[in-house]
C-alpha cells in the first residue's frame, strides 16, 4: 500500500533576484512501513520535499498524495486535520511548546484530537518511559537537554500512532551517542508499529539505519536504493 506519492512536483523559491529550484520535477513513491532516508547536501531539496509531503508547503506544480488523499489542493484547515490525524513531525530544533511540560507536550496532539484525559495520560506515560524519560515527565523543555527534548518530540510524534512520521534532521543537535539511541528508537517503532518513517538528513550515521536511501541533488532524486539497515 502506498503511503506517499509525489508526482512531478516542482517548487521554486526566490531569493533576491535569483530563482532557486528546490524541487525539480521530482516523483517518488513510499510504501507503508518503509524507513526512508532522504539525503542531500544543504539546499538539495530534502526539507522542501519533507514539507511538501507534510502539507507544510505547497508545491508550485505536480501532485502530492498522502494515505490515498491528494493534499496539494487542500485548504489550510484540511491540511491541519490531515497532519493532526495522520502525520507525526520531528523537527531539527524548537520542537516543543516551551510552556508545556514533557508529558503535556506528548499529550498535546491527543488533546487537540479529543482523546480522553485518562487515555492520554496512560499513553503519554508509556511513551515517555519507552523513550527513556521516565521521571522527567513534569519537566519543562528548558529544564531538559537537547537529546531529552528530541525524545519528547519523538514521543509526541508517534503517540497517536500516525501512519507517517516525518523527521527533519532529527539528530542535528544531538551527540553521536544520543543520536544513535534516537535512531534505534525510530527503527524499533518502525518495526513494531509498521509506521512509515521519512527522515531528511545529511548525517552519515543516520543513513545506516535506513532500509531505503534516497539521494537528492538540486531538487532531483539522483539515487534511490534499498539497503540492509543496521
Amino acid at each position: 500500500m502506498t503511503a506517499v506519492r509525489c508526482i512531478d512536483i516542482c517548487k521554486t523559491y526566490t531569493q533576491g533576484d535569483v530563482d532557486i529550484k528546490a524541487l525539480d520535477h521530482l516523483s517518488i513513491e513510499i510504501e507503508k512501513g518503509e524507513f526512508v532516508c532522504l539525503m542531500s547536501p544543504s539546499g538539495g531539496g530534502k526539507t522542501t520535499l519533507l514539507n511538501a509531503i507534510g502539507g507544510l508547503d505547497i508545491p508550485d506544480s505536480g501532485e502530492v498524495w498522502v494515505g490515498g488523499q491528494r493534499i496539494d489542493q487542500m485548504s489550510k484547515g484540511e491540511l491541519a486535520e490531515l497532519r493532526l490525524a495522520n502525520i507525526g513531525f520531528v523537527f531539527q530544533a524548537y520542537n516543543l511548546i516551551p510552556v508545556l511540560t514533557a508529558r503535556e507536550n506528548v499529550e498535546f496532539v491527543m488533546q487537540v484530537q479529543g482523546v480522553r484525559p485518562a487515555e492520554r495520560h496512560v499513553k503519554s506515560m508509556v511513551l515517555l518511559e519507552e523513550v527513556g524519560l521516565e521521571g522527567l515527565e513534569d519537566r519543562l523543555p528548558a529544564e531538559m537537554s537537547g537529546g531529552q527534548q528530541q525524545r519528547v518530540a519523538v514521543a509526541r510524534a508517534i503517540v497517536s500512532r500516525p501512519e507517517l512520521v516525518l523527521a527533519d534532521e532529527p539528530t542535528a543537535n544531538l551527540d553521536s551517542h544520543t543520536a544513535a539511541d534516537l535512531m534505534e528508537l525510530f527503527v524499533q517503532l518502525n518495526e513494531h508499529h509498521q509506521t512509515t518513517f521519512v527522515i531528511a538528513t545529511h548525517d552519515q550515521g543516520v543513513m545506516r539505519y535506513a532500509k531505503r536511501l534516497v539521494r537528492m541533488r538540486d531538487g532531483r532524486i539522483v539515487d534511490d536504493v534499498q539497503q540492509n539497515a543496521a
Partner: peptide
Amino acid sequence: VREIGLMLALGMKPAM
C-alpha cells in the same frame, strides 16, 4: 512565531 508554526504543523487550525 516558531512555536505558532510548530502548533500549526502539529495540526492546530489557524482559527485555534
